[in-house]
Design a protein around this nucleic acid. Structure first.
Length: 264
DNA sequence: ATCGGTACCTGCACGC
DNA sequence: TGCGTGCAGGTACCGA
């Protein structure tokens, strides 16, 4: 579910937690703790005040006063909620001096764990797509030898783009998902960069895409799904030319595109 | 060092 | 009703 715009929306919806103190942590799943010991982590979280909440691509990093971090990734089905009730797939419950924070994730592809050090995983991420300079983006693009769809999904290239926004950006740029990146000239790089910035900005403004069940921390749905032009529109007419939207697998992910508007 | 495929998990929609 | 299949916003890990 959650890509950059959804995670940004969630991060904003929990921004009010800065300054709150964690009174207790109940950690139920070891899987989302990434092998950490639940009791030890709960003990490290207890009593700490939340100093800062930042988004890194699709990760949310909660910095704690006095050191230490809470690293959160929503995976495919993760939710951070400011109110209960806890359910079958609630893996973490933080009781704060005012309020509660729940982490819920049915598929358990996400994570929610305490880290003493700044998480090394975050250092391996590429730049933020809404912050990277065009010149750097274009140069990095030409250095890679792969299919553009796979590259957009590679978090070491740019961080935060997932399947929805990769497909939507490629459609807007008129680029086929199988196009080879090493052959990108300045014009195509520019179109892709502009499309990526536009689609992510618009999606953030819309509160993200609620494709099946995504909601922010206050339970509100996004509405960017109504602006999708290709994602999950297989067989429906292209909004530009009327040609039926096609679907193919790239890097084992569904890719939706218009065979007429998007050239290789 | 990069890649592309597969595994990890649960739930849902669909056809039979 | 139930069962099998395929699909789903994610990343990590395995060989080639």
């Amino acid at each position: 579910m959650p890509e950059l715009p959804e995670v940004e929306t969630v991060a904003r919806s929990i921004a009010r937690l800065v300054g709150r103190r964690i009174l207790a942590a109940e950690l139920r799943s070891t899987r989302v703790l990434r092998g950490g010991d639940p009791d030890a982590m709960a003990a490290r979280l207890r009593g700490r005040r939340i100093a800062r909440i930042q988004r890194y691509g699709k990760f949310i990093l909660v910095s704690l006063e006095g050191g230490g971090y809470l690293l959160i990734h929503l995976g495919m089905t993760g939710r951070l909620l400011l109110a209960g009730p806890a359910g079958k797939h609630t893996h973490a419950i933080l009781t704060l001096d005012r309020g509660t924070l729940l982490y819920d994730d049915s598929r358990q592809f996400g994570c929610f764990y305490f880290s003493e050090e700044f998480p090394p995983r975050l250092r391996k991420l590429g730049p933020e797509p809404l912050e990277v300079r065009f010149e750097d983006f274009a140069a990095a693009l030409r250095r890679r030898h792969t299919r553009i769809k796979a590259l957009l999904l590679n978090q070491a290239f740019v961080r935060g783009i997932g399947n929805i926004y990769a497909d939507e950006a490629l459609f807007r740029a008129g680029i086929h998902p199988l196009a080879q990146t090493s052959r990108f000239g300045g014009a195509r790089a520019r179109r892709l960069f502009d499309a990526m910035v536009a689609v992510l900005s618009e999606a953030i403004a819309a509160g993200g895409s609620s494709v099946s069940d995504y909601v922010d921390a206050r339970g509100r749905k996004g509405f960017f799904q109504f602006s999708h032009r290709v994602y999950q529109r297989t067989g429906e007419p292209c909004l530009t030319c009327g040609t039926p939207i096609r679907r193919l697998l790239v890097a084992a992910r569904s890719s939706h595109f218009c065979p007429r508007c998007q050239k290789r």
